[in-house]
Amino acid sequence: MTKYHHIKSFLFLILLCVILTTGCAHSPGPSSATLPVAKSSPQPILLASTSEQSTAQSAVDAVNPLDDEYKEDELVDEYAKNAVQEERVEIADPLETVNRAMHQFNDKLYFWALKPVAQGYKAIVPEPARVSVKNFFSNLGFPARFLSCLLQADFSGVATETGRFTINTIWGIGGLLDPSAGKELDLQKQDTDLGQTLGVWGVGQGFYIVWPVFGPSSPRDSVSIVGDYFLYPVSYISPWYAGGGVKAYEEVNATSLRIGDYEALKDAAVDPYVAFRDAYAQYRFKKIKARKAKPNPSVPAAEKSSLVKPALPEKGD
């Protein structure tokens, strides 16, 4: 019975999403078309860089024979200019002192709590089961991805997500399996969120924030943390601590599949705090760039020409 209750509240949630989006579509809708243009003065250069700039760049390279490695004077700007694809991605960090403290806190949280628990869990539960659990939770993340695609006017993404959710829920045993990502259907998860949506609309990153538990973020991406909370069915489990428990379990499961990644990144870094900040900035920047570059039938042709060239194609072949 409780099961039905959940499905009902879930359906209500989807309905809410739809109402919300159709409601919102009137106000941010047009701005989503204008904002990127207004804001995107550096963007065309970045996106067009692959074709036009590269030819110009090769000329630069020809002038800059790379074998005279220790040539003094001419080097100054070469490497800043030599950005065939290396856009400079930086994020302001006015809260560095607080952020560093939070970074330390999260580091300890990982090594003292999350990692030991995840290791124990990993020893007991075989990998295929853990992958299924991950799929299950990922399937529940559908509302947030669906809404984000919709708000980005990415209708193929909306269709893909809807298809995935239906197929994986019905044929994938409630989302435990991911048959839609297989070769035949090839419906890949739309890895997007509300922070990216704002980014696509032209909202800048702002500055760097490290939240306790949630980790690296920015004012813009913090919207994701809040939005995802409300769009994530697990948040509606009552009592609240049961929902919290489920989320903690989800995190342990996810961590068990990537033990060693954090350690490797940290060990490789000269200043781990700066390394993670930069990785975060680069990662978000390129994700949003890829979302913007996604060929979209709803975007006007003039705008499209600058957007069509995907700097980072999502799939090969």
């Binding site: 290396e86 930086e90 870094a269 000269v270 700066v274 390394a275 930069d278 680069q282």
Partner: peptide, 21 residues
């Protein structure tokens, strides 16, 4: 001359760190 793992360029990542220092 550069390896980009999951959208993160190693060269850029170290550049930010060394710049900071």
């Amino acid at each position: 001359y550069d390896v980009v793992v999951e959208n993160v360029s190693l060269v850029q990542n170290y550049r930010t760190q060394f710049n900071d220092i």
